[in-house]
Nucleic acid binder design. Sequence first.
DNA 1: TTGTGTTTTATTGCCTCC
DNA 2: GGAGGCAATAAAACACAA
Length: 274
Amino acid sequence: MEFGRIFFNPSYSGNMFPGNGDSIFQGARSVMNIEESTKKRPFFSMPEELYDEEYFDEQLPEKKRRLTPEQVNFLEKSFEEENKLEPERKTQLAKNLGLQPRQVAVWFQNRRARWKNKQLERDYDQLKSSHESLLSNYDSILKENEKLKAEVLSMTEKLGAKESAGEPVPCQNSDPLLMVASHAPALQISVKVEDRLSTGSDGSAVVDEDCPHLLDSGNSCFPDNEYTGYATIDCVQSEEDDGSDDGGNYLSAFVGAEQEQHEDGEALGWFIWS
DNA sequence: TTGTGTTTTATTGCCTCC
DNA sequence: GGAGGCAATAAAACACAA
């Protein structure tokens, strides 16, 4: 027979509400029917009790039992205060609840695991909605892009008509896209993406399907932008989640444009990257 | 009543820290 | 090396539909 295993003591009724002044359940006993308590309350024996003759005469070892709602409530409150269990607190809780310290430790262990799972679910939901929102933004940007292209096309046609009619053309650059760029030298799109995926000390990293290679450092995947001729795309990696809600990632796509110049500084036109 | 899925309690084994 | 944490897992308890 294995020591430390759990046995049911049907005659048990006192340990749970010892009435010694420091039990939280002094007044709670009325919640539970006495008969029920003597029939169903769990008891986790000490090893020496396993050799108690009387014990074996009258009681059969039984399987594990659930904690009472009162015990669970108290443990929940304690968990809310602090989800880690120092030895002193464990002993005190065990004493107050009439449980073995080991049970209290196990309960906290399992409770932390449940909390972590819930947290992962929440993170997933948030990430999902962020993704949907980004997709929606992307769609509208695509539409806008199509609209602008059509506009450019129409302007090009008008320009061509003027050129063939011998009229002077103000812009030196013949590429209509570059003309558009000259009106809007830089377009910056910055979308905040909540990062709640990572939790506690073992949070997971966010992997962006679209630019997974960008996500390891939070730095630009392109050379620094000190030289304006580079576009910058930043996919900032997840941060350690400290429980506060202020952590956030920014997906920033910076589409830059540079004005090409002659050596003498005379502007030739705009280049645009994407 | 019974079959099945879910939740809770507990164990095991491995890892890290002091 | 011992204590404590975590992931994985077992198994009992529970919930619920058929």
